[in-house]
Design a protein around this nucleic acid. Structure first.
Lengths: 122, 122
DNA sequence: CGACTCGTACGATAACCCTCGTACTACGAG
DNA sequence: CTCGTAGTACGAGGGTTATCGTACGAGTCG
């Protein structure tokens, strides 16, 4: 089925049943990771790590993406030399209905409230 | 207004506008603190610290309650020798509509899913 | 007053987390 | 094959956190 992913370089993801609320909350409690998730949600598509312009080094970026993946928030897959990232909306919505949307709305709201110029209403 | 609180022993709380989403998520990402908040929500009333039967020492309990207070999740006030704890529902609902309820529902759901015997449906 | 309960303060310890830099691997283009 | 780009691995530094134990303070009750 249109397998453009590179085989033999699979990344470990938690199964849906293994995703823990505490882990998700911890993952989202870091400003950098919350920002990543918000951009991902706004894009409504897969994004390569390199598409994010974060104020940290590549190493740190890798670290944050791994935390998000290991907590079950995003799914990562290699596509050529790029690593594509997507929110695990289906899994999260199934486990914790509405949580993701409410969380994103809360983050948007806070951005507006704090005059967070740049990425408030996208 | 029926001031039963002990004066001269006020505790520092963040103002509503100072509450940060990241801080709230971080506070709730600890199992012990999530448990406290769930019990508090289920009680729908103020509860003294001593009403919680947590598997940690008193020192650690004090620590967790302080984290919850400083992140803006709960409000604490002295009443005689007891310290009463209440969720800051009004503030949280105002800042992040529905978030608290969805979060509590997610926690309940996970408890049921994991067969968390003891305090699932109260 | 004296004893008791509730909670705090402080210090210690071990674990964790965010960040970085450097060296490295994997893939694609020429 | 060589080079460039995307991302990883590893290790270290510096800060924060969760936990404890012991000693202490603040009220309440007898």
């Amino acid at each position: 089925m249109t397998d453009t992913a590179t085989p033999g370089r699979a990344l470990p993801h938690p199964e849906r049943e293994e995703i823990r609320l505490e882990g998700v909350l911890h993952a989202l409690s870091d400003p950098m990771r919350l920002r990543i998730v918000r951009e991902l949600a706004a894009a409504e598509a897969e994004l390569a790590c390199s598409r994010f312009d974060l104020p940290v080094t590549k190493s740190t970026t890798t670290h944050h993406f791994r935390v998000l993946r290991e907590s079950g928030v995003i799914r990562q897959v290699y596509r050529g030399t790029a690593k594509m990232n997507a929110l695990r909306r289906d899994d999260l919505d199934c486990l914790f209905p509405e949580l993701l949307d409410i969380l994103l709305a809360a983050a948007d709201r806070q951005s507006v409230r704090l005059g967070d110029r740049g990425r408030s209403t996208s």
